[in-house]
């Protein structure tokens, strides 16, 4: 909508706060520039949280719809990245709740990490043979759901206990406890693997 490719290119150079201000004024090109800039992180977070490639893209799309509607209420335009990620968190949790009502998670065909090849058929040997990151993925997959959510929201999105509590609709004390349990389990698994 801003017209020339030169102007589009310019938008890729400007800071978040300026783009968020323009988008709040109704500039769709600025909004799209924000979406492109933070899309990969939003998608990565949604994939880890939902465990599903298709759900993750639905989450990103729903997040952008909600963001466009609510952007003019954002008090600090410079904080737009964290704000987008908090919406991704809430939307992902919504998707998990919906999915639980419909289907067994283990039946997901488009499961995240499923595409990394045959080595994944045996998580144990994968942990031994694969990279440390692959081992962490496997350990993460074995965590209780609630612990994994806390861990991802903390480590991927750097949310505070209060923000995570809000997203998951639990108390900040529960967040602190679950996050600690998650880390202890993961740290132990990784130390054993070292």
């Amino acid at each position: 909508m801003t017209g020339s490719p030169a102007a589009q290119h310019q938008l890729d150079l400007v800071p978040d706060a300026l783009l968020a201000g323009r988008a709040a004024d109704g500039d769709t090109a600025a909004f799209e520039a924000l979406a492109r800039r933070h899309g990969p992180l939003m998608r990565a977070t949604a994939r880890r949280l939902t465990g599903s490639l298709a759900d993750a893209d639905d989450v990103v799309q729903e997040t952008l719809v909600q963001a466009w509607k609510q952007l003019d209420g954002l008090r600090d335009p410079a904080a737009v990245r964290g704000w987008l990620l908090r919406i991704v968190g809430s939307r992902s949790i919504d998707h998990l709740r919906k999915r639980r009502n419909h289907a067994d998670l283990s039946g997901v065909e488009d499961a995240v990490d499923a595409s990394s090849g045959p080595k994944h058929e045996d998580p144990e040997s994968n942990a031994l043979n694969g990279s440390r990151v692959e081992a962490l993925k496997a350990a993460l997959a074995k965590l209780p759901e609630e612990q994994r959510r806390c861990w991802v929201l903390k480590e991927f999105n750097d949310q505070s206990y209060e923000e995570i509590a809000q997203t998951l609709n639990i108390s900040p004390a529960s967040v602190r406890g679950r996050l600690a349990r998650a880390r202890i389990t993961l740290a132990r698994t990784m130390e054993e693997w070292r």
Binding site: A35, G39, P40, L41, R43, R47, L136, R183
Partner: peptide, 23 residues
């Protein structure tokens, strides 16, 4: 040990973001 996990978490994040593709 917790800090090593945190570093590894950052590596997972980078790897996941790379897998997510460009905007």
């Amino acid at each position: 040990s917790l800090r090593r996990l945190s570093v590894l978490g950052s590596e997972l994040l980078s790897s996941d973001v790379a897998d997510a593709g460009s905007g």
